[in-house]
Every structure is written in structure tokens, then in C-alpha cells.
Design a protein around this nucleic acid. Structure first.
Lengths: 156, 156
DNA sequence: ATTGCTGCAAACCTTTTGCAAGAAT
DNA sequence: ATTCTTGCAAAAGGTTTGCAGCAAT
């Protein structure tokens, strides 16, 4: 187990290796069951675009393993989120997206084109530190994206 | 007109004085019409809790000026937002909230108790600068709240 | 007199839930 | 065998939209 977030946010949960079987072991170790839907969702996240909305995941699993109910996908995502396998990110106007938990990065989401840019926690470490010091507030930069305009959209 | 946001985010729009009549003038100057619903919303925001959800505003205007349709409130909020009089903030799981635009502050929203803490832009200036420098991305810290846990909730 | 704003009701979209049946451990 | 997970269908929230009539400029 590793501290997954930045300074001031030591959240200890399962570590997620980038291989299906290891992920499934992690899920079982954490008390979860590995079902057809579990596999479908994990595979979609592994293969996919890295930043998938629930809708993306529903479409992707439908392609791979037709017949899974949408509500099941939501429940799987919620469960994997609680287990620490998956992380969800709120991105303002845009849809919430999901990705496998990794060593820690925040997201910039462009309000113009919707582009999602990963930013290593290290880059934003001072925010966490400052806010913790001045406000006693433990920021979780993984849980909400930072909005703004990407370089391309800014030019327009 | 003042640059309202932090470094790298010079958004020039109407400046909002904290008095109804001046706000209405600003709206008219920006090409908007001042209607009964406009006044109701502005008054709710001026008197209210500073951080009101659409639902809060609907309830508040209903108390002051009964009979305004919900959809009208949403349309007024949208219009005032476009005019730069109002700002809306996405706060993760919690409802989007609105407030009159002022000289610039970001928000911390506690995922535990929902508390909203204002943070002057100055405190977070380095984020904007860093992200602008390293990613060419112009962050707008007003548009999405930072989530985390407040001091109280952290103790529990 | 224009043109924008409003009320009403219905549509929308994403996410959640209850329940009985089915599957993983 | 037990307990968790699933499919279905319905509900729930929050927000948006079409339209004809009304109101601000």
C-alpha cells in the first residue's frame, strides 16, 4: 500500500497494477467479487482512452460483452471506486470521468474543447501544502478537475 | 473593468457593485433587461448566504416574489452569468452554486459536511502561474471548487 | 413597436433504486 | 449455502427547451 495522493492527503488503499489479473486479485483481497461486469469494466479502462465517462464505459463494455445493464456498470464503478481500484473525477460542465487509480495525478479540463490534461501531483503540491497550512483543509486534487482553457483554445 | 481572475486569466467583464441599482445599470449597459425575475434573483444573492444553489435561489425568490417559474430562474442565472454579474461554481458531488461576482476568490468544498470556504485568488496564485508556464493552460479556479476535507471533518 | 423575457409543461440526461433471480466465493 | 451481484424497469434530480403570450426598452 502506498500513500496515493499528495501532501496532506494520505489515503491508503489498494495499489493498482496495470494488469487485469493483478487487479482482480486486488479486488478479491479487498473483499470484492470478480464478475463478468467487473472484467468488462476493468478491460475497458485498461484499453480505453484512460479518461472515460460512464457513457463511454457503457458503450465500450457493450462492444466487448454485450448485455450488461447500465445500472450494473454504475454499480461496478462505484464498487471499484470504493475499493480504490478506480477513481472518478468531476469536471465542471463536462461529464464525470473514470480511470484506474495510479500513482497520482490531477486533471486540467479545457472548457473550450474538453481536452483532459494530466498533471502529476508534484506540480500542484504547493497548493495542497498552502491550503492545509492556512485553512486546515485537506485538498483532494484528484476528485475535481481544474477547469480553464488549453493553449489551443486560448488562441482562438 | 478590472481583471477579475488571477494571473493568466484576464477575463474582462462588468464589475459588480454591491448595490442593486448599480447592478441593474450594469445589466442594462451590457444589453440585458431588468425584469421582476432579474430583481428577485439579484436580491436573493445580495441578501442570501452568498453561496446559493439554484434550488436555494428558487426557494428564496419564491418567498420574496412568488410565482416565478423555475425555468425562469435558471434562465436568469444563465443570463447574469454570461453578463458577468453572477458566477457559478461546480462543486463535485454537491450542487452547483452561484454568487455575485466579486474581486476574486476560489472555493474549497468539504466532501464531508459540504462546508464552503472562500480562498482569495492570491493564495492560489502559484497554481495558475505554474500551470500556465508548464502547460500553457489558463486555469480558472473560480469555475470549479477544490474538494477535500475541512479541519472538523478530518478529525472525525 | 420591437425583441427579449416569462410561464407552463414536457423532455432530457445522468445516475440511483427496489426487487426477484442468478452467480461468485 | 451464503451473500453479493445483476437485469429490468421505474424513479429521481437537476437542468433545458418549445412555444405562445407578455413586458422592458
Amino acid at each position: 500500500m502506498l500513500p496515493i495522493n499528495g501532501p496532506g492527503t494520505a489515503v491508503y488503499r489498494v495499489t493498482v497494477p496495470a494488469q487485469p489479473e493483478l487487479i482482480y486479485d486486488a479486488i478479491r483481497n479487498a473483499g470484492g467479487r470478480v464478475t463478468v461486469s467487473t472484467r468488462a469494466v476493468v478491460e475497458a479502462l485498461l484499453d480505453g482512452d484512460r479518461h472515460l465517462t460512464a457513457d463511454d464505459i457503457i458503450a465500450e463494455t457493450e462492444r466487448r460483452t454485450p448485455g450488461i445493464a447500465e445500472s450494473t456498470i454504475y454499480r461496478v464503478l462505484q464498487r471499484l471506486d470504493e475499493l480504490g481500484v478506480v477513481e472518478h473525477v468531476h469536471s465542471g460542465h463536462h461529464a464525470t470521468f473514470y480511470h484506474l487509480r495510479d500513482l497520482g495525478h490531477a486533471h486540467l479540463v479545457c472548457t473550450g474543447c474538453g481536452a483532459i490534461i494530466d498533471v502529476p501531483d508534484r506540480v500542484l503540491a504547493t497548493v495542497s501544502t498552502t491550503v492545509a497550512r492556512d485553512y486546515g483543509f485537506t485538498v483532494d486534487l484528484h476528485h475535481t478537475a481544474l477547469n480553464g482553457r488549453c493553449a489551443d483554445c486560448r488562441e482562438r
